[in-house]
């Protein structure tokens, strides 16, 4: 197991150090076993199953197709369309959340009254069940029962008959709004934590030197929050890439709003295509892994180092 492969970190061989090493490994062992049991093992099993044409409704008809499933998936336009949807949702929601979240963080940082009230209200969208948030927004956008059409019909592209679940872009907008509402608070809290680490003296010094508000923001505040921004973007981007609940509740994938996760779910649970579904799972896993690597490289921050871990 990975815990045993690391090069020795123990500096001396005294009984005390040996005992400490043993206790440490014993204490982490149960958590490591549980984490591997439910992720690494099933993932290896998925890798194995992805080599078969295997449908649960006809288990005897199982045959080895090597990379056949991957070939089928990668040459299917549906896979690419769903991947594109997922990427659009990820990029749009994370960018908007970053801007709104930062504005929220600025307000929370500066505010001197009602901090508790504000913290409480900000945590409610975070804590609320995603399914509930999806229902709330589905009803908000509903043509019969929603208030969006009547409140915003002064906007040129909204009128009382706008059917938000009637075509691709409207449905995507509704899904993204629900996602943004639910996760902006999380983003703003992470950014607030980063913002409070930026030294006031530095901002003051820049002000004295004649820096404008924009210069102070882009040259002093943001560069000094890089670690916090990176953690927020990393976690939110990967989270957005896994989007599933909102789509399941709001459209069930209608109007081409299917995401990668939804496609995988549909293959496994609805179609019972275990072989094909496993291949999709492996692809999804690899995509997330690649995405994480990209973001970490982009910000050039060592996460463990940022946490102060040796």
């Amino acid at each position: 197991m990975t815990t045993l492969l690391q090069r020795p970190a123990v500096r001396d061989d005294s009984d005390r150090a040996v005992a400490e090493n043993r206790l440490g490994q014993r204490l982490v062992a149960p958590a490591v076993v549980i984490m591997l049991l439910v992720t690494a093992w099933p993932m290896l099993r998925a890798l194995y199953l992805s080599g078969f044409r295997y449908r649960l409704t006809t288990p005897d008809d199982r045959s080895f197709v090597f990379l056949g499933n991957y070939g089928t998936i990668l040459s299917d336009p549906l896979f690419w369309k769903d991947t594109l949807n997922t990427v659009i949702i990820m990029v749009v929601t994370v960018s908007i959340e970053l801007v709104i979240g930062f504005a929220f963080a600025m307000v929370m940082h500066r505010i001197v009254f009602a901090r508790g009230v504000m913290r409480t209200s900000i945590l409610i969208p975070y804590g609320i069940i995603t399914v509930v948030s999806a229902f709330a927004w589905q009803f908000t956008f509903s043509i019969n029962n929603g208030y969006i059409n009547s409140w915003f019909d002064w906007l040129p592209f909204i009128n009382p008959d706008t059917n938000w679940f009637g075509d691709h872009w409207h449905a995507m907008t509704a899904i993204m709004v629900s996602e943004i509402w639910k996760t902006t608070p999380f983003m703003s809290l992470l950014l607030l934590a980063g913002l409070s680490q930026v030294s006031e003296d530095m901002i003051e010094a820049a002000k004295v030197d004649g820096a404008t508000w924009f210069q102070r923001l882009f040259k002093v505040i943001l560069p000094n929050m890089r670690a916090a921004i990176m953690v927020a973007v990393l976690f939110r981007a990967l989270d957005a890439f896994r989007i599933f609940d909102n789509i399941f509740v709001m459209t069930r994938g209608a109007q081409n709003t299917e995401s990668s996760s939804f496609l995988t779910y549909r293959q496994v649970i609805e179609q019972m295509q275990l072989g094909m579904g496993s291949a999709l799972s492996v692809l999804l896993f690899l995509t997330v892994l690649g995405l994480a690597y990209l973001i970490v490289r982009m910000f050039k921050v060592d996460l463990a180092q940022a946490r102060g871990e040796a």
Binding site: V38, L234, R242, S278, L280
Partner: peptide, 10 residues
């Protein structure tokens, strides 16, 4: 960071 859906099948 693990995509939960990829575990659904296995």
């Amino acid at each position: 960071m693990f995509p939960v859906v990829s575990l659904v099948g296995p």
